[in-house]
């Protein structure tokens, strides 16, 4: 049993003793515990399926090593791009009233609502139009590495925008107003007041975007293909291993993904928490 939280000071004046909080906390734990048990159960089942030699095998595969590197780089770039876009959109939505705002809000939810395959297909079609082809003349995108980053960015950014908007919603705009009355321009108020306060939210948005990108598969399969040593990211590896009946390989790559993701998220959050304290 975890230590119970105590509401100190509430009942000090009265002789009456508050009823025990134990049933309440047990109830919370029971409801939440089912989910945690489900996650841990999945991991344990995966681990039970594996033999250490399966790991040796995937670490020796140059394709998997390439996919790991590409996954890390592309999702980090996608997360950075997402932040870069999500901060201004989040700030706009949070601080300004304008015509068509609710429409814009709905548009920004489209990547969250659309099935992944549809996003991949739509991107593929977009880059076959005149405009798309013009872009392709400068940088090859479809079936090349940039297509992976774009596919990840499209989905991850929508989540980052949501997070940034609620971050700015929670920051009291009065402080920026005060800064303005003290002679700041709107932009100075943003950079000096709102932006530093939004750091924690940016960290959350960035890690969320990174995690979405790291696990993304559907749009990448359609828009980037599964060309080994080129557009193969780790989820693609899992799929390719599955499609040759190599379940051990697929599970081993999945465990590798989980390990990498946990390390990255813990390190980033730990570092972020330290930064906040400064």
């Amino acid at each position: 049993m975890m230590p119970l939280m105590e509401f100190n000071g509430l009942n000090k004046q009265k002789p009456y003793r508050a009823p025990s909080d134990v049933p309440f906390v047990i109830g919370l734990c029971l409801l939440g515990g089912v989910y945690v048990a489900l996650i841990l159960g999945m991991l344990l089942a995966d681990a039970a399926y594996l033999h250490p030699s399966d790991f040796v095998q995937i670490f020796q595969s140059p394709e998997i090593r390439y996919a790991t590197r590409l996954s890390l780089i592309s999702s980090s770039l996608a997360a950075l791009l997402s932040l870069w876009v999500a901060v201004p959109i989040g700030y706009l939505l949070s601080r300004f009233k304008f015509r068509g705002k609710s429409l814009l809000d709905a548009v920004l939810d489209i990547p969250i609502v659309l099935p992944p395959l549809v996003i991949g297909l739509s991107l593929l079609i977009l880059f076959q139009t005149g405009l798309g082809r013009a872009v392709e003349k400068v940088i090859p995108i479809t079936y090349a590495i940039p297509s992976i980053i774009i596919a990840q960015f499209v989905v991850a950014c929508a989540f980052a925008v949501r997070t940034m908007r609620s971050t700015f919603d929670q920051i009291d705009s009065r402080r920026e107003d005060v800064a303005c009355t003290l002679g700041c321009s709107r932009s100075q108020a943003f950079w000096r007041v709102a932006f530093p306060e939004a750091r924690r939210g940016m960290l959350t948005a960035g890690t969320l975007a990174w995690a979405r990108s790291f696990g993304e598969f559907g749009p990448i399969l359609i828009f980037s293909g599964a060309t080994r040593m080129r557009t193969e990211v780790l989820p693609t590896s899992v799929f390719l291993e599955m499609s040759i009946g190599n379940i051990e390989g697929a599970v081993a790559v999945s465990m590798l993904m989980i390990a990498v993701a946990v390390v990255v998220l813990v390190v980033v959050r730990g570092w972020g928490a330290k930064e906040m304290l400064r």
Binding site: F127, Q128, Y143, L221, S224, G225, T227
Partner: peptide
């Protein structure tokens, strides 16, 4: 040449779709 300019995909119908779309 496929690695440079084309694509490998795991489902045969996706290959036909690629030609149809013009990718």
């Amino acid at each position: 040449s496929v690695q440079r300019r084309g694509v490998f995909k795991p489902m045969v119908t996706d290959l036909a779709n690629d030609v149809r779309i013009g990718a």
